[in-house]
Amino acid sequence: MKPEAHFINTCWRIIVHSWQHTIRNAWIAAATVAMLVLVLSSVNVLLAVQAFTNQAIQHLEDHIDVIATFTPNASDTLIQQARSYVLSLPQVQDVTFISADQVLQTFRQSHASDTAVQAGLHDVDGNPLGAELVIKAKHTEDYAFILQALQNPQYASLFDTSTYDDHHEAIAAVQNLADQIRLIGSALIALFTLFGMLLTFNTLRVAVYTHREEIGIMRLVGASSAFVRTPFILEGIWLASFAILLSSILFACGVWWINPLLRPLFEGSDPGVTTFFLQNILTIILVETAGLYALVTTVSTLAVGTYLR
């Protein structure tokens, strides 16, 4: 037989042996796949939870703004200058101007049932309330700078109040919470990935251990190390592929089920889990496949090697 034909023949046999072995040891294969699916799903769930918390934090951050209230006697020209100044700040994403009349109208509506307030407003001559600027920053950490910028001597006298004091602690708390959640989420994913690797390592070792006598017999009959080892590596790769397929389907089903349930928490907007899934599923599958294949190859090589003499 020519060397090329011999090589192809051997490769074909190794593939057939590995596939036969997988099918004929269905229970061990099923247990191994179940364990791998558990490991992959744990990581997938944590990734989805992190995507969800990121979206929740983003949602919370979107609701943060600073309201700067002008003194009632500030002229329209100065108010527009102040608005332009705020808009020119690179940290500012958006500024909404609310006129004094609109502020008064909103105030009346929100205190419609309060007779004392209504009477007070009636007694006061003219509009006691000033116009407002609703300022949104690009990033939560920019609010501190924006509020500082409002203290600019050129414009500081125009502002009656700002919600700086009211928001300062809340903004800092949200920012702190977001940082903590992101850190804990990343740490949990790293930890579960590590646990998953250890679990996979042991699962594959046990699977090979159950075949230790077969490995010995193959060697006694004259099989080379590669002829014994490679089918086990391939078997591990079949099982890993099956586990990745199953865990991806489970992940997709989970996302499809949970996303509508989370929507009310986000006032009808996308909770972000589906978006995260659609944007990242290919990367996740590729990374998990590469990682699992590398792990399977390493563990199978080492574990089978223990029983090769």
């Binding site: 037989m1 034909a5 011999h6 023949n9 051997t10 046999r13 193959m218 009959v221 004259g222 099989a223 080379s224 002829f227």
Partner: peptide, 11 residues
């Protein structure tokens, strides 16, 4: 057949 496969015998 395994004893033949390990020595690379043809199918």
């Amino acid at each position: 057949a395994f004893a033949l496969e390990v020595i690379g015998a043809s199918r």
